[in-house]
Write a protein that binds this DNA or RNA. Sequence first.
RNA 1: CGGGGCGUAGCGCAGUCUGGUUAGCGCGCCUGGUUCGGGACCAGGAGGUCGGAGGUUCGAAUCCUCUCGCCCCGACCA
Length: 476
Amino acid sequence: MAERITPRSEDFGRWYTDLVIQGQLADYSPVKGCMVIRPNGYAIWERMQQVLDNMFKETGHVNAYFPLFIPESFMKKEAEHVEGFAPECAIVTHGGGEKLEEPLYVRPTSETIIWSMYKKWIMSYRDLPILINQWANVVRWEMRTRLFLRTTEFLWQEGHTAHSTFEEAEEETLKILEIYRKFAEEYMAMPVIVGRKSEAEKFAGAKHTYSIEALMQDGKALQAGTSHNLGQNFARAFDVTFQDKDGSVKHVYATSWGVSTRLIGALLLTHGDDSGVVIPPRLAQTQIVVIPIWQEATRQPVFDFTNRVFRQLQDHFSVKLDDRDQYKPGYKFTEWEMVGVPLRIEIGPRDVENNQVMVVRRDNRSKTPVGIDELVTRIEQILTVMQQEMYQRALDFQKANTHRSDNYQEFKRILEEKGGFIEAHWCGSAECEEKIKDETKATIRTIPFQREIEAGNCLICGKDSDDGRVIFAKAY
RNA sequence: CGGGGCGUAGCGCAGUCUGGUUAGCGCGCCUGGUUCGGGACCAGGAGGUCGGAGGUUCGAAUCCUCUCGCCCCGACCA
């Protein structure tokens, strides 16, 4: 550690890479496009898993595991699907020293293998719904990769559910979307726009794709989670039918949904600063680091006091004690700031005298002396306020960087000069969407659920757009 | 795949143009001591066949040819 982080103002891309490398969240691997997730980064993922997994289970989902390898023929069953993924798949052609009869795809996602199994498991409406999630790795052979944001192999969860009606599938899709929103906003302290994807942006093979979209500090949008209503497309491809109450045989309705280690990237790009990573309290695996400060003469009293405080904290928070002898306090401050631990507690001789500790917030560096009598309640308070303020700050940023435009020239200028979200009218045609993408690189990030009904004219063709505005942005 | 940058100690780099002692510097690491409220200091020490292969030469990190890999920026994508 101990290297300098490039300031955001100097080079945003470098800053991001520095953050990940210096904060020891991840490291480059010997395999191009892949990364090693180091303990600091994996701790964030573990917390994400923990929180989301609980939310999934609370809503009736169960975990399972499906194989990494998918027969080539499976991939080809769903036409749109294979079209969407074929170019970015890794394919195993040899095994056991021999050429395989049928090549095996390394899963880019598991719809096909899962639906081949669901075919075996589903006979009657009584077998439905199936609400399965899996935590797994997937591989997509991307042209260009970036730590956490886009790597060849990444970790994610993919939920795959089966239902007897379209409405139920739609309900499931939206239920999950709400879980994602809640997780992003309440745990990651990252405000998101919830909405539906345009036809061009939706998942290959889906009826509807919904997503949560977040705005990063550099004004680019990032898709943080997606939930798809797949309709009967996969059931038809894999011939998955069930007999309904009335005796009729129908194809099953499906959903799939996922978030990935990309969320870690989103977290960094939302809250990180020039000193390093900032992790919101509710997501931090280590919430507090205690740093004793002593001189030779004060060593014993400081350590006694520190140990007492530390034990008390341990019962209520996840806390680490940094009593390493070989580093000075300032060095430790810098190091822990790089890693993003939400609170630092400094304990020096003066604090011992006053029977207090110094609590320092990572996000704004504010220092609060806290008497040890009220230690736990005050720290709980500080953590709660910090969580709220981090969210509010991010929300203020999002609002300040959301612009409206009814004029294409102006739209381009905003994109060029400021970036951010742009709310604009769109007629709904793929042509106009495509034109904007080609000319500006901005895409329709989402058609928000929450939008004013407002008549307007398409930015490109001028045709009526009566439902309201959609959100454009350049995206990660 | 196009454009740019780069491979020399664990990390960051200098040396390469103009070939010539034992390949340097900073950080980190090890040992000992003094330190400790925002990246401590002193002393001593370990560590590199210069990405790889071939060639030119009395002599190559340095020149030539080939090759491998990485990072950044663009086209594709979560």
